[in-house]
């Protein structure tokens, strides 16, 4: 299972700077980032090449952080492919809790990062429908 780093931050000038600085200093490469926030605080979600290392670096810096299991699914980089994949999961009653995506590699493949209600079932369903789940080593 791929792990995503989630970081809590107050919404103040310089905060994002401090957080990305921690990953830079630890020489951890960011593959994708998503920021969700309201007026006062937010959560940064990082998909990185070495989640354990990034997690330790945040801890040492005294930043509130957690590691969360996510599914990373490869999709074709063309209209309708995200919709099709989510539809597959919906039909089997898998709840999507969080979702973001990015484009990677020379072949510009779409990669969708999913947090779901039942990761094991979601993995099985996706594999049955021919989706490739990308492991942490391939990222």
């Amino acid at each position: 299972m791929v792990k995503q780093i989630n970081v809590f931050s107050e919404d103040q000038p310089g905060k994002l700077d401090r957080i990305t600085g921690v990953l830079a200093d630890a020489n951890v490469n960011i593959l994708a980032v998503k920021i969700s926030s309201d007026e006062e605080y937010g959560v940064f979600q990082f998909l990185v090449d070495d989640p354990e290392k990034g997690f330790r670096a945040f801890k040492q810096a005294g930043i509130t952080v957690s590691l969360k299991d996510v599914l990373t699914v490869g999709v074709e980089n063309k209209p309708g492919s995200l919709h099709h994949m989510l539809d597959t999961l919906r039909k089997d009653n898998i709840d999507i809790e969080d979702c973001h995506g990015f484009v990677a590699g020379r072949e510009k493949k779409g990669i969708i990062v999913l947090e779901v209600s039942d990761p094991a079932a979601a993995r099985r369903i996706l594999e049955q429908h021919g989706y490739s789940l990308i492991g942490s080593s391939e990222l």
């Binding site: 995503q4 989630n6 809590f8 926030s37 309201d38 937010g42 959560v43 509130t64 957690s66 969360k68």
Partner: peptide, 15 residues
């Protein structure tokens, strides 16, 4: 202040 151990990265839970 949030208690670090109780943070699981979910903004909706915080709300």
């Amino acid at each position: 202040e949030l208690y670090p151990k109780m943070f699981d990265g979910d903004l909706r839970k915080l709300k």
